[in-house]
Simulated scan of single mutants.
Amino acid sequence: MNWYSDVVPPKIKAILKREAPENLWVKCPESGQLVFHKDIEANLYVVPSSGYHMRFPVEARLASLFDNGAYELMTTPEPPTDPLKFRDIKRYVDKLKEYRVKTGRPDAVTVAIGRLKEIPVTVAVQDFEFMGGSLGMAAGEAIIAGATYALEKRTPFIIFTASGGARMQEGMFSLMQMPRTTIAVQRLRKARLPYIVVLTNPTTGGVTASYAMLGDVHIAEPGAIIGFAGARVIEQTIREKLPEGFQRAEYLEDHGMVDMVTPRAEMRDTLARLCGLLTKRPAPRQPAAA
């Protein structure tokens, strides 16, 4: 006998029943510990006990970066939606519609303008929730538009990368975004404007082979997977066991592939300090001690 369904009166059931959100508790992928989702949000989506860096929603990342959480989203060009008329299980255009509804964004890259500790900056954020952050024409156009704006306004350009690589549904059009974004970065370098890359988990494929590894400074979030091909593919190719932690941010820092590994709580201060140094701006004034 199920005492709850067979014995408890309906009115009492209504009192006992409580609707709880599905994400009330979040399980840490590293330690397996259950953490209250409000604690995760308050800690910049970092698990307090283990320090595991979970995926950071685009809006939350931008709000944590800019002064007073204030920023303006840039309108980016809209390229052709489906140049190859691609279809697998479902049409590519239908898949795009689903992700646009799910994320509330037109594509994988969002560009924002604002101030970082009084320094005007242009920021691009790649969203892994949108088709794995894959690089297609729209994402390429957004990055180029952000770099062009930074060039015109003479601001540092900061990009947070997160991607599985090029978008196969766009074929060669997707691969062409690699040289196009590389040229945009070269224009920034020629103008002596800072280009700072923050590598988040994961950054792989064609993104790593282009703009993600062309920064003046490369910062990685703790534990981020960064590389071109997957570890399993590399092991099968070279027929050797890879070292422990291979392609993790800390391993790459030890071997000179990234400049620093910075926890999310320190990211804003670190980026502001770098932008100040690279643009030769004075440090923002500190409030006088009481």
Rank of each mutant, 00 (worst) to 15 (best):
M1K: 03
Y4T: 09
Y4C: 08
D6L: 11
P9Y: 13
P10D: 13
K11T: 13
A14H: 06
K17I: 09
R18K: 14
N23R: 10
N23Q: 11
L24V: 13
S31L: 07
S31M: 05
G32A: 01
L34H: 14
D39A: 15
V46E: 01
V46D: 01
V46R: 00
V47F: 15
S50P: 00
S50M: 02
P57N: 04
V58Y: 10
V58C: 05
E59Q: 11
A60G: 08
L65G: 07
T75K: 13
T75F: 09
T76C: 06
P77A: 12
P80V: 13
T81V: 13
K85I: 02
K90Q: 12
Y92K: 01
K95R: 13
L96S: 03
K97P: 05
R100G: 15
K102Y: 15
R105F: 15
D107M: 04
V109W: 09
I119A: 10
V123Q: 00
V125D: 07
F128V: 11
F130E: 05
A138P: 00
A138V: 08
E141H: 14
A142Y: 07
I143V: 15
I144P: 05
A147W: 04
T148H: 07
K153P: 02
K153R: 08
K153V: 10
T155G: 09
I158D: 01
I159D: 01
I159W: 03
T161F: 15
A162K: 05
A162I: 06
A162Y: 11
G164W: 12
G164I: 11
A166Y: 11
R167P: 03
E170D: 03
G171A: 09
F173G: 14
S174L: 01
Q177M: 14
T181Y: 01
T182R: 00
V185P: 02
R187V: 12
R187E: 12
R187I: 09
A191N: 02
P194V: 08
P194D: 08
Y195C: 02
Y195N: 02
V197A: 10
V197Y: 03
V198C: 01
L199G: 01
N201A: 13
P202W: 13
T203W: 14
T203H: 14
G206M: 03
T208D: 08
L214R: 02
G215A: 05
I219E: 00
A220M: 04
E221L: 14
I226N: 02
A231V: 12
Q236E: 15
K241T: 11
E244K: 04
G245L: 10
E250Y: 10
Y251K: 01
E253C: 12
H255P: 00
G256H: 08
G256R: 05
M257L: 13
V261F: 06
V261L: 07
R264I: 11
R268I: 04
D269T: 06
L271A: 03
R273H: 15
L274P: 08
L277T: 12
L277R: 14
L278F: 15
L278N: 10
P282L: 13
R285K: 14
P287R: 07
P287T: 09
P287N: 06
